[in-house]
């Protein structure tokens, strides 16, 4: 029995551009979001891997100094606002469509507890958690939603490490209950996003048709798992690194680093001034 069911109805925007939107959804997850995630976790992880940089030890905590250096570098990038804007656009696009697409499925890991099926389910759950985390993370750190941070701490780009530590610990000194909650939230958020990215990278290769045979899918799976594990280490290192930091010590390091930077800047300024004076002295009418 098959009466032709091709009832003609006006096709919505989503329907007409279904393929393009689906593929853009997949693409944006990798570029720019995934690429940004990698660089962001590398930056934040510097609070731990920065300890390896002995040249920074003179400021006190080498990790904090390295991190501050990285943050300063990012803030020096020209047109940062536009980069941020496009990233925001990509995240909004990816998550709104993601919500809509996730709505089309009904999970069934209860009956079919295969690994792949769990990954399918986790991909959706981590998507939800991830976007909540991103909004919180950016809201509190970038848009100053201090009503959502313990003790109303505001993050500052000049004192990146110490303010971050203060937020994750819940107070400028000891670790508080609120601090533990925020730290746990960060761990969950970071874990979710890393899983979401690594698994998304694995499925994208199927979606785009890069890995066809089961062997190829398995191999690429190992690669994605490896990348995920690396990012996971970086992300956890950052969160735990900040959460275990003494904000006072961090602040001291930052001040020292800032002072040195200033001094260097002043030094350069002095040279310039001197030169300018010299030149003006030469040029001055006798």
């Amino acid at each position: 029995m098959s009466e032709a069911t091709t009832a003609k109805h006006p096709r919505s925007f989503l329907e007409r551009h279904h393929h393009l939107l689906r593929r853009l959804h997949s693409l944006t997850g990798i570029v720019p979001i995934g690429v940004f995630l990698i660089s962001h976790l590398l930056t934040n992880g510097s609070v731990v891997w920065g300890l390896l940089d002995s040249r920074k030890a003179e400021y006190g905590h080498a990790g904090v100094a390295t991190f501050q250096h990285e943050v300063d570098f990012i803030h020096s990038i020209p047109f940062l606002f536009f980069i941020e804007l496009s990233l925001w656009g990509a995240i909004a696009f990816h998550s709104i469509l993601g919500f809509y697409y996730a709505k089309t499925g009904i999970t069934n890991t209860g009956s079919y507890s295969f690994g792949g099926n769990w990954r399918y389910r986790l991909q959706r759950i981590t998507g939800y958690i991830g976007i909540l985390f991103i909004v919180y993370h950016v809201g509190t750190l970038r848009w100053n939603w201090t009503f959502l941070t313990p003790g109303g701490t505001a993050w500052s780009a000049e004192f990146a490490g110490s303010t971050m530590a203060q937020i994750l610990r819940g107070s400028p000194s000891e670790l508080t209950v609120a601090g533990v909650a925020v730290t746990a939230g960060y761990l969950l958020g970071v874990t979710s996003l890393v899983f979401h990215f690594a698994n998304g990278l694995w499925t994208a290769a199927i979606t785009w048709g890069l890995t066809i045979s089961q062997a190829a899918q398995r191999r690429w799976g190992y690669a994605c798992a490896g990348l995920g594990a690396g990012l996971m280490v970086m992300g956890w290192a950052a969160v735990i690194g900040f959460a275990t930091l003494d904000p006072a010590e961090a602040k001291a390091t930052e001040q020292k680093f800032r002072l040195k930077e200033q001094r260097e800047a002043e030094k350069i300024g002095e040279v310039i001034d001197r030169e300018r004076n010299r030149v003006s002295a030469i040029d001055a009418p006798r």
């Binding site: 989503l14 689906r22 499925g105 099926n117 990954r119 499925t203 199927i206 979606t207």
Partner: peptide, 13 residues
């Protein structure tokens, strides 16, 4: 098109 291959969620059940 809509409902096509792009709707696959790669659960691989």
């Amino acid at each position: 098109g809509q409902g096509g291959i792009n709707d696959c969620g790669n659960a691989q059940n």
